[in-house]
Design a protein around this nucleic acid. Sequence first.
DNA 1: TCCAAGGTGGACGTATAGTCCAGAGTATGG
DNA 2: CCATACTCTGGACTATACGTCCACCTTGGA
Lengths: 204, 204
Amino acid sequence: MWAPVGQAVALLLGPYAEVVLHDPDTDRILAIWNPMGSRGPGDPSLLGELDTLDPSARDVFGPYEKVLADGRRLSSVSAVLRDPDGKAAAVLCVNLDRTPLEHAAAVLSAFGAPTTSRPEPLFEQDWNERVQHIVGAYVRECGRPLERLTRADRLAVLARLEEAKVFAVRRATPVVASALRVSRSTLYGLLAELRTPSTKDHTS
Amino acid sequence: MWAPVGQAVALLLGPYAEVVLHDPDTDRILAIWNPMGSRGPGDPSLLGELDTLDPSARDVFGPYEKVLADGRRLSSVSAVLRDPDGKAAAVLCVNLDRTPLEHAAAVLSAFGAPTTSRPEPLFEQDWNERVQHIVGAYVRECGRPLERLTRADRLAVLARLEEAKVFAVRRATPVVASALRVSRSTLYGLLAELRTPSTKDHTS
DNA sequence: TCCAAGGTGGACGTATAGTCCAGAGTATGG
DNA sequence: CCATACTCTGGACTATACGTCCACCTTGGA
C-alpha cells in the first residue's frame, strides 16, 4: 500500500538515497529501493528504538547520522505511517549518502583556501582517479560495499572500465586490480571471461 | 621580479590552477606553481604564437580552452608583463582545471535527475588521432613540411606530446615515431634530451 | 675531401603484460 | 557434518613492449 511512496522518494533522491519500508508488526523489511547494504525484503528491520505503538508520540525521527562500515556517512530520517484508525502500518526510512555532497563541498571550498594543508591528492594520475570513480559509481548503484561485490558485479565494472579504454593506459592493470580488491591473476581471469564471445552475455 | 605575482595567483586559485611565468627572451620557463605536467623551471616555454615584441599589440590573451589528453578541460589566460620602457619582461600564464567544478556540478545535479542515464564521461581514446593533430598543428604553425623539421622543432613537438600525456598510453612510442618520421631510436634520444634539465640550449 | 653532428637499424637487457597452475578458502548439496 | 564444485590467490613462467646502446651511414659545412 505504501510502496508508491517509497518508490517516489527513491526516484526523487536519485542514486544517493536508500529508501526502506518496514513492517512494524513482523519487524521485517517490506521493500527497499537503492539498497546500500545487502539487505533485501524479508530481512529483519532492526529498528527497535522506534516506538510505533503510541499514536500520541511523534512519528518523524531524525535527521540523524549513521556511518557505514566502508566509511560512508548517511543522513537518515524515519517516519511512522499510520492507518486512519491510528495503527502503525509501516515505517519509512530514508538514508541519504552524504559522501558525494561532502566531496563536492570539499572541492568547491578548496578554491580560495589560504592554507597549503592539501598535498593535492586530486592531481596524481588522472586516469587513476577515473578508475576509482567508475568503481565507486558502481558501488553506489548496487549498494554493496566493494568487498561484497559478486563475480558478476566485478565483470560489469570491468566492462565499463574496458569501455572507457582504461586498459589502453600503461600500468593500468595493477591499479585496476587493487581498485577492485582482487589479485592480478583474478583480474586477468575476469578479463578473459569478459572478452571471449563464447561466454554467456552479461548486461551492464 | 614578477614571481610574487605568480605565487599570489597560485595561492588564490588553490590547487586547481597552474601558474607559469615565462621568459620571452630565452623562451624558457622562469617559475611554475602547481604544475600539471612535468614541466619545471628552465624547460622550453613553447608559446611561439604570442607576439611579445610589439608593445602596441594586446597583452592579454584568452580565456581560451585547452583539452588535455586525459580529458581534463582547462581554461587558460596569458598576459605579457612589460617593463616601464615597454620591453616584455615576462609572460604569465594561468591554467585553471575546470574538471573539479564540472565534477561537483555533475554530482549536485544528479539529485533529482529522473533518468538513470549514465553521466560518465568516457575516456577519450582517439589519442592516435590526437598525435596526428598535434604534429599537424605544429607543422602548420612553422610552415615547414614534416620532413624538413629541425631537431629543435621535433623537440618542441615532443614537449607538447608529453604534456598531453601521450606517452602514458600503451604502444604510443612507435606511433609517435612514425608520426614524426623518425626512427624509434631517435625518438628515445630526443625524449631523453627533452627530459634531462642539464641539456644545453639550442636557440637563443 | 674531410670532419662533425645527427639519424638509422639492430642487438641487447629490463620491465610490464599476460598465462598457467597447485593450493587454500567458501558456498552448496547431500 | 562431510564432500563436491567453484573461485580466489600467490608464484612461476613466457611473451611482448619499453628503453638503452652502439656501429654504421647520411648530410651539410669548412
